[in-house]
């Protein structure tokens, strides 16, 4: 029996007359890599903000890692991690300082922060540059560090919003290696991307069109259903013709 970690039932979010999310229902299972795709403006960011406890839905029942999005947003925030392409680290703090800062925000003890920081810096092989400002790090390294920092407090779920945009192809794959490794250890990964090959790395993928979920299945099943040779074709068929 798969353990459900995100439950969404009839999520709607309206801004005045505009319906950004229209009656979304889906589950995400523990340890799953869940791809959340959609065209620009389809409502992905709005839904993601609701799931992270940053915005209240207009209606619907949503449970994240055992907590309710209406009444337990603070508990949700401590049990999830979040990383976006645009902003995830402080460029004018050093690598060391960024890690300590996030550890502190999530209320880890100084001792814990110190121990875990050493492990992380060794794992990412950042020892030689740990006192350097993040802005001096190449983008690829910054994204790997940002992911590690987002899961530093060992959340149950991590939300990744276009984590690999603009990253070179080798680093992009190293980044996905890290995602696989954590998912293998039981972390649930909820990820948006515009790279359709990355959609195929996900266990299941949902595709949003105009505020609704137009399709949700494993990549293999989606390719069969839509008679497509890859996810790029699946995406085109769904977004263009639904």
């Amino acid at each position: 029996m798969k353990e459900t970690i995100i439950t969404v039932r009839n999520l709607s979010k309206k801004f005045g007359d505009f319906i950004a999310n229209d009656d979304l229902s889906f589950d995400v299972y523990k340890g799953e890599i869940f791809g959340f795709l959609g065209a620009n403006g389809a409502g992905k960011t709005t839904a993601m903000r609701v799931l992270c406890g940053l915005s209240k839905p207009t209606s619907g029942d949503i449970n994240i890692a055992g907590f309710d999005v209406y009444s337990q947003t603070e508990l949700i925030k401590t049990n999830i991690g979040y990383m976006s392409q645009k902003f995830s680290l402080y460029e004018d703090l050093t690598i060391d300082e960024n890690i300590s800062f996030y550890g502190g925000i999530y209320k880890l003890s100084n001792k814990e922060i110190k121990e875990k920081k050493e492990l992380l810096i060794n794992k990412l092989q950042l020892n030689a540059v740990r006192k350097k400002l993040v802005r001096e790090l190449p983008l690829g390294w910054r994204q790997k560090l940002a992911f590690s920092v987002a899961i530093f407090h060992e959340p149950k779920i991590v939300f990744l919003d276009e984590p690999t945009g603009g990253v070179d192809p080798i680093t992009r794959r190293q980044f996905w290696d890290m995602i696989y490794e954590e998912s293998d250890k039981g972390l649930t990964v909820f990820v948006t991307t515009h790279y359709m090959d990355e959609a195929e790395y996900c266990n299941r993928v949902s595709i949003m069109v105009d505020g609704k979920i137009a399709a949700l299945d494993t990549p293999v099943n989606l390719m069969q259903t839509y008679n497509a040779k890859n996810m790029d074709e699946v995406f085109l068929k769904i977004v263009r013709f639904s």
């Binding site: 620009n40 945009g165 515009h194 359709m196 790029d232 995406f235 085109l236 977004v239």
Partner: peptide, 10 residues
Amino acid sequence: TTGVDAVSRK
């Protein structure tokens, strides 16, 4: 086309 979805890119 950076940050643009696959359909709009095409």
